[in-house]
């Protein structure tokens, strides 16, 4: 059914956005983390969205009736920008010169990103709601 297709597409977006919120909260939680199992300070992580790869059948149907695709997070990338350096000689992770390498995370940016993720999530929930309302209206035809 077409309505259920809308659900699946919006559902994939909801999943992607909640994963995005997870990475943002991971970044916010580790904003002061100076040591990781891999060594060095925590690096900012960000999600990489990609439209879902289609099977041949779906590709064919998509070409016939205008392509509609869901979204998925294909990978989580690490920000390559160098770490912030803070002078704090008493810190256990301080280098020879007394500087500590802090994660390359800006709390401000993360908050803005979080708002964006929340809004996208809301937008997709709204599209599911609207699809449901349309289905209900269609059922009212028979009444």
């Amino acid at each position: 059914m077409d309505i259920l297709n809308t659900f699946r597409i919006s559902g994939s977006a909801l999943q992607a956005q909640s994963l995005r919120l997870n990475t943002i909260s991971s970044n916010l939680a580790n904003v002061e983390t100076t040591s990781t199992p891999e060594g060095g300070p925590y690096k900012k992580k960000s999600v990489y969205f990609q439209s879902t790869p289609l099977t041949f059948q779906e590709q064919l149907e998509g070409n016939l009736q205008g392509s509609v695709q869901g979204v998925q997070v294909s990978k989580i990338t690490e920000d390559p920008t160098p770490p912030r350096k803070v002078y704090n000689p008493s810190h256990p992770d301080a280098g020879e010169d007394g500087y500590v390498e802090m994660p390359n995370i800006s709390v401000l940016e993360e908050m803005v990103d979080m708002m964006s993720a929340t809004r996208s999530y809301q937008a997709n929930v709204t599209s599911i709601k609207m699809a449901k309302r349309m289905a209900m209206k269609a059922l009212e035809i028979g009444r």
């Binding site: 309505i3 699946r8 559902g11 909801l14 909640s18 449901k132």
Partner: peptide, 12 residues
């Protein structure tokens, strides 16, 4: 949301 979508599908 997967749970909610499944329940909505059943409802419709």
């Amino acid at each position: 949301h997967e749970v909610m979508i499944a329940v909505e599908e059943a409802d419709i």
